[in-house]
Amino acid sequence: MMRSCPRLSRRLRAIASVLALLGMVAIPLAAQNPILEFSFESDPVTIPQASIRSASLRVENISVHEADNIEIALLSGPIEVTAGELIDVLGAFSDVLLNVPLSADADARIGEALAQFELTYTYCIGDLCFQIVEEVSLGIDVVAALTVPIDGPLPDPIVAKPVVDDGNAWRIVVPLGLGLLLALALIASRWIGRRWWVTLLLVGVLAVGLGYGISLKQDQQAQSIGAVLCTSCVGIEETPHRDPELSDDGQQRVMALTERIELLLFSAPWCHACPYAKELVRQVTELNSLITNQVIDVDEDRDAADRNGIIQSGRTIVPAILRVDTGEVLFGIEDLEERLMTLLEESP
């Protein structure tokens, strides 16, 4: 009995380590998933013909990310949605009850029917934004018009009852804590010995990982991450947290330009400094129509970066702004306004 104990605990450790590895895989997976849950509280909704009613829609954010621009649209059903924009921002782990204003025409068919809605929202992790579209259905019971039709002002789709519900946090905290506990158990224990089946298991993981990963072109993805240097990613520059605003002096200098100037802005979707550069160049091109800009994603079009000399010692550096006629390039965003002005004012 005493002898079998260490063996058992080794097995448990093996299981723990596999679970911990799975946990490590599960965390990144959570990133692209829907983060909101929708449910109608009043189902079905009774609407008399030629009148407006509202349906209570509960929206729960089950993630650490903020959801933006939650909108609703009708796909099918005997009614109409009178205001599609529901709410601008819903914070992490929060929960709201919204009124969705619905109207039935005077000639809407009487009887029960199912309405299908499409809910759209976006959320961002850094510069990466995802748009999520989900469908929900609601039972509608259209009844005969009331003798005095109610046609008052539209009910506002405002937050009726904002509740911060920490109960949802477990969805993230529990798997994370479990993974951490397992990792700690792994660390605290002595690692399982070199058994043939451990080696076999690892060779299996290796073969599947490499084979499937390469079939998904993850090696190319890795290469493209390595080949592009985002100046704010490794701490060469500060990550900007605010959008730039062209100074008054800058605006006048831009408006005074009389030559046609073509700019190319090289960026990558995951680069944190790129939106700053894009925004500044956008403001410049808006002020003076002689200046044009084209944004190039270096992940998509590496050749363009190659042709235009955005590559320094094997690294494509983003953000980079190229003035096409002079071939001059600005890397990064530090003192960008001043450097951009100098670039624009130079005569070719």
Partner: peptide, 19 residues
Amino acid sequence: IIFGTVPYYWIGMMVVYGL
């Protein structure tokens, strides 16, 4: 992790080196 990619290739390579 920022991309939300399940890192098959990365895990495979780490096991190669680890093993």
